[in-house]
Amino acid sequence: MSFIVITTMNELNEIKDEKGLLLKLFETDHLNVPERSNLPNGIIRKSVVQKLIENHLKNHGWFPGKKQMPAGDAGGEYYQLEFQEDGKAILHHNFEYSYLKFKHKSVRYDSIDDLIQSYLVEKQKEGLDGLKIDWKS
């Protein structure tokens, strides 16, 4: 016996608000087509994502996520931001240096704004699932 399941977009609990979409994009590196259509003009507005990341860092200390990702081989490749209570702003990068071998490096920044700017530049270089950042909005 086999079943066919038919769902509608509403049943998939599609994210429609811009901040929720941006959070999903930076956590998963992906948005589906209906989600992309809910971004204003199909772009990432720098001012909105800047504030979203800053608020998340101040509330949780890490972005994306709420805790530090594993470093080295256990973590795979990623960028993650850390903001400590004493104001230290750190960009963590776990990167592949050989086939399936990963190293971790951290870079400190003078401000949370500089940290987020560097992160967004690196994420745009990676592709952001084909989306572009509008640096002026």
Score class of each variant (00 low, 15 high):
residue 13 N to K: 15
residue 117 Q to E: 10
residue 39 L to G: 05
residue 112 I to M: 07
residue 127 G to A: 14
residue 10 N to F: 06
residue 6 I to Q: 05
residue 36 R to I: 14
residue 19 K to N: 14
residue 34 P to L: 08
residue 29 D to N: 08
residue 22 L to S: 01
residue 81 L to M: 08
residue 74 A to S: 06
residue 65 G to P: 00
residue 47 S to C: 07
residue 87 G to T: 08
residue 98 S to F: 11
residue 122 E to D: 15
residue 23 L to K: 10
residue 86 D to V: 06
residue 52 L to C: 09
residue 137 S to D: 14
residue 61 G to D: 11
residue 24 K to S: 04
residue 95 F to P: 03
residue 28 T to Y: 08
residue 6 I to D: 03
residue 129 D to C: 14
residue 39 L to T: 04
residue 119 Y to W: 09
residue 41 N to A: 09
residue 67 K to E: 06
residue 86 D to F: 03
residue 98 S to T: 02
residue 70 P to S: 01
residue 61 G to K: 11
residue 72 G to T: 00
residue 77 E to C: 02
residue 122 E to P: 10
residue 119 Y to D: 06
residue 22 L to W: 01
residue 89 A to D: 09
residue 54 E to R: 12
residue 131 L to P: 09
residue 48 V to D: 05
residue 137 S to Y: 02
residue 69 M to N: 09
residue 43 I to Q: 12
residue 62 W to P: 04
residue 122 E to T: 12
residue 94 N to S: 02
residue 82 E to V: 07
residue 26 F to V: 00
residue 41 N to L: 01
residue 34 P to R: 13
residue 117 Q to T: 11
residue 93 H to Y: 13
residue 87 G to A: 10
residue 108 R to P: 12
residue 67 K to R: 11
residue 43 I to P: 01
residue 129 D to R: 13
residue 79 Y to K: 10
residue 98 S to K: 14
residue 133 I to H: 13
residue 5 V to P: 01
residue 39 L to W: 14
residue 89 A to I: 05
residue 63 F to P: 07
residue 62 W to N: 13
residue 65 G to I: 00
residue 35 E to T: 02
residue 14 E to T: 15
residue 77 E to W: 04
residue 29 D to Y: 03
residue 116 I to L: 04
residue 21 L to K: 01
residue 132 K to W: 07
residue 121 V to P: 11
residue 6 I to C: 04
residue 38 N to Y: 12
residue 11 E to K: 15
residue 101 K to P: 04
residue 54 E to G: 10
residue 96 E to Y: 08
residue 114 D to G: 12
residue 21 L to Q: 02
residue 97 Y to I: 13
residue 93 H to V: 09
residue 38 N to S: 04
residue 107 V to Y: 10
residue 110 D to I: 03
residue 70 P to R: 00
residue 109 Y to F: 15
residue 128 L to F: 15
residue 131 L to T: 03
residue 74 A to W: 01
residue 111 S to M: 02
residue 58 K to A: 08
residue 88 K to F: 06
residue 84 Q to W: 07
residue 32 N to R: 10
residue 102 F to M: 07
residue 96 E to L: 03
residue 94 N to T: 03
residue 41 N to F: 07
residue 74 A to M: 09
residue 63 F to K: 05
residue 111 S to N: 05
residue 97 Y to T: 06
residue 23 L to S: 07
residue 116 I to K: 01
residue 85 E to M: 04
residue 82 E to F: 06
residue 123 K to L: 04
residue 34 P to E: 15
residue 80 Q to L: 02
residue 101 K to G: 04
residue 103 K to F: 11
residue 69 M to C: 13
residue 137 S to L: 13
residue 90 I to M: 00
residue 103 K to P: 08
residue 59 N to T: 09
residue 135 W to M: 07
residue 102 F to A: 03
residue 66 K to N: 11
residue 9 M to R: 14
residue 75 G to R: 05
residue 89 A to K: 09
residue 89 A to H: 07
residue 5 V to I: 10
residue 126 E to Y: 05
residue 109 Y to Q: 12
residue 83 F to T: 08
residue 58 K to F: 06
residue 133 I to R: 14
residue 45 R to L: 08
residue 33 V to P: 00
residue 126 E to P: 06
residue 12 L to I: 13
residue 12 L to K: 15
residue 65 G to T: 00
residue 134 D to S: 08
residue 131 L to I: 07
residue 98 S to H: 08
residue 112 I to S: 00
residue 109 Y to M: 13
residue 33 V to T: 10
residue 85 E to P: 02
residue 135 W to E: 04
residue 46 K to G: 07
residue 116 I to S: 01
residue 15 I to N: 12
residue 55 N to D: 15
residue 5 V to E: 01
residue 63 F to A: 07
residue 103 K to A: 12
